[in-house]
Design a protein around this nucleic acid. Sequence first.
DNA 1: TCAAAAGTGTTTATATTACACCCATGA
DNA 2: TCATGGGTGTAATATAAACACTTTTGA
Lengths: 236, 236
Amino acid sequence: MYTYPLSSRILLAIDCIIFGFDGKDIKLLLIKRNFEPEKGNWSLMGGFLKEEEDLEAGAGRILHDLTGLTNIYVEQLEVFGKINRDPAERTVSVVFFALIQIDEHDAEAVKSHNASWISLDKRPQLIFDHNQMVDRAIEHLRYKAALHPIGFELLPENFTIPQLQKLYEAIYNTPLDRRNFSRKLLSTGLLIDTGFKNNNSATKKATLYRLDTIRYKEKFHAFWNFMPDAMKTPQS
Amino acid sequence: MYTYPLSSRILLAIDCIIFGFDGKDIKLLLIKRNFEPEKGNWSLMGGFLKEEEDLEAGAGRILHDLTGLTNIYVEQLEVFGKINRDPAERTVSVVFFALIQIDEHDAEAVKSHNASWISLDKRPQLIFDHNQMVDRAIEHLRYKAALHPIGFELLPENFTIPQLQKLYEAIYNTPLDRRNFSRKLLSTGLLIDTGFKNNNSATKKATLYRLDTIRYKEKFHAFWNFMPDAMKTPQS
DNA sequence: TCAAAAGTGTTTATATTACACCCATGA
DNA sequence: TCATGGGTGTAATATAAACACTTTTGA
């Protein structure tokens, strides 16, 4: 069998951007490293691809290690491959973009990794090129959420329209008109009324909806054009 | 300095999907391999990332080798990393998506690589997972061209509206209404009348336009919503 | 003078925006 | 009973879609 004798092998890392939503702010799951290198500094959760492991499986493993969850929404975001991005050794990192329901994570696992949920506007400096990775992920979140129904991935199974609106307002950092938002959302046909009401509110209780998962899959790749026109200047 | 003694190094490949447009069909630049492995079979143009080379530089090098061009429109598409995708050895491939102006390539360079421009519907089976890569790239082309003004990257500097329409009809494999297409396009403000007319036509000569590169850059990230609604079911 | 392709305008339907009032709840 | 947040309707505007005739050209 043919082999490739002349080419050099490179260390392949996986880094995960993990977004959550606490009902008010978009948060990132970051770790304060209690291991080398860069011990004591903040970074994304990551690891190295194993020899006997597919790329997506590697991302799944790393995400499961930290959160205890499987079936997380994950996509490849971008590969970061600058020569000196890791001062220790040439390392190419495949960055994954994950959205999780913040209240479902395993708090023990998170704690044992010395990880915390941190609001976007309070995030510390991160090691290496992880800041750029996060910037890129935020851009991607804004872009993708305007075109595809991914917002739901950040909410619990049953959610209210005002909750979803707060999520979008947090993503785009802008207020939205309640009436237009609600109409547009309901007109997608993606929401099913559970018949229940939200109990959290001290005032009028909001209707709890759930996703129509069939239509969600059908409509996922359709363009949504969800944000008002003024917001339409994100990227790539 | 810290190193990563326990992790395994992996061969990192770069594969390039290169699209062109000949005025009628979307074409792919593919190579009939006159080297091992898989000699005699068709594949994408590719190579291995060098130790002293950034990822994007590697893609640029491979694209330049084959086409003689620099300043090609390139983006990262996706990383393919299944364990056994290359039977010779574990190889992870970063796939790049490139659009070129077909008449500007260096025919000699292409010939010396045993490469040819092949219409999408006539493409042969490719080695390894290169068929999936191409499928993914076609999806991406349809998706991206509906939202961003990338079609121009496939046309000569001066082009006519009917040429651009034929390009979009080729991408989406569907006829478009000339009047609506033209109005929508001109309303973007992206086109500048060169004052010249196309001489190719045996009938009425079409106006030659060029891109307003300033506005092109400004508007690149704005959503375009360019294709009619019926077409809006591509992906990711 | 005729065939082939370019250029343009209007009407209709649909989607988006802006905006204000009433309702339910528990403190 | 009042403050807070939830729910809904309508009119004006903008955008998109469907559709047909006139112009230019060179064979």
